[in-house]
Amino acid sequence: MRVLRALLRRLTGGDLREIRSEIRELRVAVDRIDGIVQQLNHELRVAAEDGPPLSIGLAERVRLDAETALASVRVIDRQLRRLGLEADGDDT
């Protein structure tokens, strides 16, 4: 983030506006992925609870992957939000 902060200081107003707009679009996409993965995770949990015992192991494995995917989205979201804060904080 320090490197990005230094880079952002060198950009012009137009560049920054474009970056902010890109970040906003990426965040909308990430938000959408977040919703879909949350839903997938939820449905897998419900399926694991309702399913016959033999399928629980498999469902549990897939659920772990879904949670990892969900957490991945949250990490990307945090990275983008921080980038957005850096871009917004620059007054050039």
Binding site: R32, G35, I36, Q38, Q39, H42
Partner: peptide, 17 residues
Amino acid sequence: GSLEPSLRPVGMFGRDV
């Protein structure tokens, strides 16, 4: 097979939200 992205299952409250 995809769902309207703005809708999520109400069952998510209490554990997934």
